[in-house]
């Protein structure tokens, strides 16, 4: 077996094993912490399709994270206040059903990614980074100044949303739900990278001219990647909001986008489990260091610097070596 495969399996199993241990020790807070890492991982797995495979450094993925979060917040808010969301010639009610909320989160963030991608993918390099950043900030300021849904204060949801057959308020059950979603998305991303689309997208990253010369369009490949990427991050946003039972404009902030990039860089750009490793490490550092110092992020920054300088390919790269081309 390849070293990276073994490493991936270890990283993958670390989460449920840690959750089971926390469960055995009756530490629900730790389960919630692991769930948080899994959701961050999911958000960054979404970004990694655009950033790692597609080479599109988006500093605006918080937009999709926030859209997913507000999709949950708005739907649940209307459901808990028994006020219809739209009440004119058609009536649209809120909902507390997770599957419906996820669907709405995925569709709205995909549509937003389509619009943002269509505009920003005409640029590249630093301009692309700046434009995606600008779009993200646009959503941030909009959320702050939109009083209907809490403005700057955000929206609290009293009870976690429901999933058929589960008690989602139970930390362990909610973790399993999140973990199953993360697993499904990871499985798909692994397939996607090897599928015809993945080969063409990765070739477009390496050499757009090559892709054009065989009659394929880099722009469309990137746009589709960006949409899928945004949709996955949007789904993570809905889960994150449900985890906290709270959404606020900070989900849209550029610091959020930056953190997703940090997860990917820490773990390994373009590696399937890079974002998982990065998110786990980040949450672990946060847990261990934040009680010691309120400036714990400085240490994270130092570690990030070390990784960038000395461990090209991130954690996965330094432990498993250079990426081998897919067979």
């Amino acid at each position: 077996m390849r070293r990276e495969t073994i490493l991936n399996a270890v990283l993958y199993l670390a989460m449920p094993v840690a959750a089971a241990l926390a469960f055995a020790m009756d530490e629900p807070f730790l389960i919630t912490l692991i769930t948080r890492a899994a959701i961050f991982a999911l958000a960054a797995v979404g970004l990694n399709l655009a950033l790692g495979l597609g080479g599109l450094v988006s500093l605006g993925h918080a937009a999709f994270f926030g859209i997913g979060g507000y999709a949950m917040g708005i739907l649940a808010h209307h459901a808990q206040t028994y006020s219809p969301m739209i009440d004119s010639w058609i009536v649209i009610e809120g909902t507390k059903s997770m599957p419906v909320i996820w669907l709405v989160a995925v569709v709205t963030s995909a549509l937003a990614a389509l619009a943002i991608g269509a505009l920003s993918l005409r640029t590249s390099g630093v301009y692309f980074i700046m434009i995606t950043l600008a779009f993200g900030q646009m959503f941030y300021y909009f959320a702050i100044s939109w009083p209907a849904y809490g403005g700057e204060d955000g929206l609290s949801i009293y009870v976690r949303n429901s999933f058929p057959g589960l008690n989602t308020l139970d930390p362990m059950q909610f973790f399993v739900l999140v973990f199953v979603i993360l697993s499904a998305v990871l499985w798909w991303m692994g397939r996607l990278a090897r599928a015809p689309f993945g080969l063409a997208l990765s070739a477009a990253r390496q050499n757009a001219e090559r892709v054009e010369t065989v009659g394929l369009g880099p722009f469309r490949l990137r746009l589709v990647a960006f949409v899928i990427s945004g949709a996955v991050t949007g789904l993570a946003g809905a889960l994150f909001a449900d985890l906290n039972r709270f959404v606020s404009p900070t989900m849209f902030s550029w610091q959020m986008s930056g953190e997703f990039i940090v997860f990917i860089v820490l773990g390994g750009v373009g590696r399937l489990f890079g974002p998982v490793a990065g998110a786990m490490l980040f949450v672990l550092l946060e847990y261990l260091l934040s009680p010691l110092s309120e400036f714990w992020l400085i240490y994270v920054g130092a570690i990030l610097l070390l990784v960038v300088l000395f461990a090209r390919g991130g954690l996965i790269g330094s432990l498993a070596g250079r990426e081998v081309a897919h067979d």
Binding site: W188, R194, A195, G198, L199, G215
Partner: peptide, 16 residues
């Protein structure tokens, strides 16, 4: 060959 076939919008089965 993929460009020639135009079958790039496939997201599941390994191309190789």
């Amino acid at each position: 060959a993929l460009g020639r076939a135009g079958s790039v919008w496939r997201f599941l089965r390994p191309v190789m």
